[in-house]
Design a protein around this nucleic acid. Structure first.
Lengths: 132, 132
DNA sequence: ATATGTGCAAACTCTTTGCATGGAG
DNA sequence: CTCCATGCAAAGAGTTTGCACATAT
């Protein structure tokens, strides 16, 4: 049983700023390893554990959102981006955001079940991979 | 870049039969650990590595399907079950199958992208957890 | 000055693999 | 009798945690 947790961010460090900058400049959700790689260009010496700690705290405090993408694993994006879903390219594993969401999913479940949120992942081949 | 693989099942062992029996009797996709736990009641001494090897081979040969459920991880179900999606209870982590799927998702992506498949996961509270 | 945040390494979980033995064909 | 499948233990990925030090407040 998972339980929610409230976290307060008490300090503004260059590591934390670098991680947020990376995600602000990303065009889709990124994996922790990739976030670390990119943030190290802004903060040399940044450790992977620090990235994980910040991703967790920033998620708990509502600034980031963890996106669990089937097959390619957990990635992170800014929580401020409006409701959307993701497309995963099966050739390059990159994730793209889709804008649409025209679902009425609440009535997919039997009486007694309550739907609180949903996640839709599309799989296929992205434009870059089609053209090569 | 992930690549498909063709596997042939050459033998019919009691371990493999136990794993299939467990999944045939399940009312939703199960995690490897849980499959092992249940199958051990049919085949005492069954090792977790054997479960993983069989889940992989049975999936590669098209008998099982791996279902990557956001937040709760990879689970397995019989591939013969017709197209459906899943509901994950955020209190007990159990996964249920949903029957409906009324999506026209192919036009959620920009030109140049090809949608080959999709996965929809609903999150909420299941009936059992509502009543307690 | 205080205690949160960081870096490193060790620990943990999930999954895969190497190797000797077992058992299906 | 042949080899694929199994069980165990070790090895790998991804993620978390303990500890001493650094630094934002």
């Amino acid at each position: 049983m998972r339980r929610p947790k409230i976290t307060v961010l008490r300090r503004d460090t260059k590591q934390r700023r670098a991680i947020l900058t990376v995600l602000r400049n990303a065009r889709g959700p990124l994996a922790p390893r990739e976030i670390c790689r990119r943030a190290q260009r802004l903060t040399p010496g940044l450790g992977l554990a620090t990235v994980y700690r910040n991703l967790r705290k920033l998620s708990e405090s509502g600034i980031l959102r963890a996106v669990e993408l089937p097959t390619v694993g957990r990635r992170f994006e800014l929580a401020s981006v409006p409701h959307h879903h993701h497309f995963v390219c099966r050739l390059c594993d990159r994730a793209y955001c889709t804008r649409s969401c025209t679902q009425k999913l609440a009535d997919w479940v039997p009486p007694g079940f309550v739907v609180e949120s949903h996640e839709i992942t599309l799989f296929g081949i992205c434009r870059d991979c089609s053209n090569s």
